[in-house]
Structure formats: structure tokens, C-alpha cells
Design a protein around this nucleic acid. Sequence first.
DNA 1: ACCACCTATGCAACTCGTTGCACAGAGTGG
DNA 2: CCACTCTGTGCAACGAGTTGCATAGGTGGT
Lengths: 187, 187
Amino acid sequence: MALEHAILVSLSEQPASGLELTRRFDRSIGFFWSATHQQIYRVLARMERDAWVHARTVAQHGRADKKVYAVTPAGGRELARWIGSPMAGDPFRSEVAVRLRGASYGDRSAVLAEVRGLRAEHATRLAHYELLEKRDFPDPAALSGHDLDVYLVLRGGIRLERFWVGWLTEYLDAHGPYDGSDHGADA
Amino acid sequence: MALEHAILVSLSEQPASGLELTRRFDRSIGFFWSATHQQIYRVLARMERDAWVHARTVAQHGRADKKVYAVTPAGGRELARWIGSPMAGDPFRSEVAVRLRGASYGDRSAVLAEVRGLRAEHATRLAHYELLEKRDFPDPAALSGHDLDVYLVLRGGIRLERFWVGWLTEYLDAHGPYDGSDHGADA
DNA sequence: ACCACCTATGCAACTCGTTGCACAGAGTGG
DNA sequence: CCACTCTGTGCAACGAGTTGCATAGGTGGT
């Protein structure tokens, strides 16, 4: 549904091959949209068929040739059309929430341990994002246009990680009359 | 992947028919997991085949018969197993984020209008959740067990809606040198 | 009597996404 | 030279989820 458009955004920022796109989807774009390389290749093929992108084969130093994709005018029009189309809120689908709600039907202490691990992961990611923010956007007030958009999406990632850390902490506090530190391994 | 387990949680709380489950997935459970009735019927059939649930046909007043499903011991064991299995963080996949990042390739003012509408929706939902919190959980400190879990998941919904309202507000503030109020209709 | 609508269940076809595997060229180490 | 690994591209099969439609009984309006 939207992978095509995520790819159009990414290729508009900078043309890339399938594998390069895959790496982006494991990094910056991947903060809010993930995709495997197979899916990307398949969608790229369809987009090329529809003339939304155009491939240019590039011979490389020692490696295999790569096909570098760039957005065509038709692709740009499609992206602009989609950007302006009505926006639906993202459906929130959380396996974690299902588990938390069902915790009393399983091993509560195991769930608490998992939640501690999960909170640690989110805290790590949050720290990483905050580092990126400081490093890449020292003066947010000076930003505008696409740079500002990139910054604001990073801000969204930061806010989201804070949501997770906050919620999981509330969960642990409510269920654990223990202290916040771990007597065990994780966290 | 997890719809089976979401259904197990819901049926553990209270047995239900396919349509009743569908309504739950449009309400409380649906805050963090959505499913259409077709999908629910299909998964229920598979779960019955695997003996995770057992159906009892119930004749009704005037309406058509319904099949009320309840969790079997085997289903309870499966749920307990899943609850205790390693928990992966929920992948965050946001079409909204893709649009915000790509806004400069389309009509910026249209995006801003959409974002204002979206923020209004999230604010409405937040108010609704906060009402539920006050009405159903006047004394959270007294909760324990499954009731506490239900409350904490609602708290997650509240925190998530606050995330959305906060982020979208930051986006609008950064892009709109206008005031926060709307000269138009939404917001 | 007829039509429209509601509850309740379900099938079929399709899209989206994941997983596992394949293949080809090129560099690296034994 | 052979096996291994890395990059780069791709197919096939499957599972998850959505959309559209079908059916069957009951209820209420005209």
C-alpha cells in the first residue's frame, strides 16, 4: 500500500539500487517503515513496469553490476498525488499490548523479565536517536523544507521511544513492588 | 501470528461468538489489535480444528443461532506458552511518518490540513480514553491481577494518543508560523 | 405480500509481507 | 585450485489480512 511511496520518497532524496534501498530501510527510513530486500526488489520491478522509476545499470569496480533507480516525472506526480491524498491514522497493532493484557494467563514473572528487556532495548534506541539529533541537527530552528521534515520525523522517533520507555516503566512499577534495578541479567 | 493469541486472551476473559468477538475487536481489544469478521471466523475455524477452542451452538430468541466459543485446556496451555515466549518489540510502521518526511515533494499546505485533522482525531480519542479511565478505574492503586493488566493497557493507549497529539503539534508548530488555532474548520 | 434491514456465518479472490532458497561475479585464505 | 564469503539480484511458496460477495432466518415498515 505505502511501500511504493516510501520508496519514492527515498529515491527522491537520493537515487539508489535495490540493495542500497534495503540498507536505508534498515536505517533512517526503517525507523518508521521496514521492508525486506525481496519485497523491495519485487515492488521496484512493478514500479519500473509502471514507469514510476527508471533503472540505469552501473558497472562497479570489482563488484557485480547494480541497477540504480531514479524517480521519473510520472513517479514524481504519483508521489505528489499520494502526499496530498486524505491521510488515515496509522492503525496501532501491538503484540506487546496483547501479551501485557493476557499476562495473568501465563507466567507473570517471565513477562516482567521480557518487559525489562524490551524497555532496555527502547532506552538504547532512544539514546541512539538523541545522539543523532544532537549530531545532525544542532540548530533545529534554522531548518526548513525537506531538512526540517527529516528532523521532525526523527523527533517522532524520539517521542515514540519515550512513549515505550514510559509505558513499560509504568507497567513494571505497577507490577513490581521491587525496585527498578535488576537482581538478574537483563534490563 | 498473534491474532490467535489475541482471541485466546479475549475468550479467556469471556466466551463469545464470532460476531461478538468482532465487536470487541472494534472496541477495547481493538485499541491495540484490529481484525475483520472474516479473518476472525477463519482463525476461529482453524483454532477449533486444533482444539484450542470449543464451540457450543446457542439458539437465540428470534435471531439466528450463534456458536459461542470457549478456550479449551489445550488452548489455555498454548496461551500460557505464548505469553512466556520471548517478546519482540512491535515494529513501528507509520504511513503518516512517510508522508511527513515526503511532504516537500507534494502540496505542503494540504499536508498541514491533513495533520490538523489527524491531530483532532487523536485528541478526541485521547479524551475518550481518559473518560474510560476515570469511569472504570477510579482507584488504580487497588487493582491487581488481570484487572490491573486491563488498566495498564488502557494507560498505554492514553500514552500513545498523547504521543500522537504531541508529535503532530510539534510538526504543526514547526511548519506553521501561524497560531495554533484554526482559521478553518478542523483542529 | 413485499422490501429493506439486522444478525450471524462463511467462501473466494486478491494484496501485502515474510521465509527460504538460488544464482552469478568477484575477492580472500588455505 | 577450491572453498568460503560478500555483493547484488531474483524466484517460489506460504501466511496474514482485506474486500467483495453469498446465504439464511427474523424483524419492521408500507
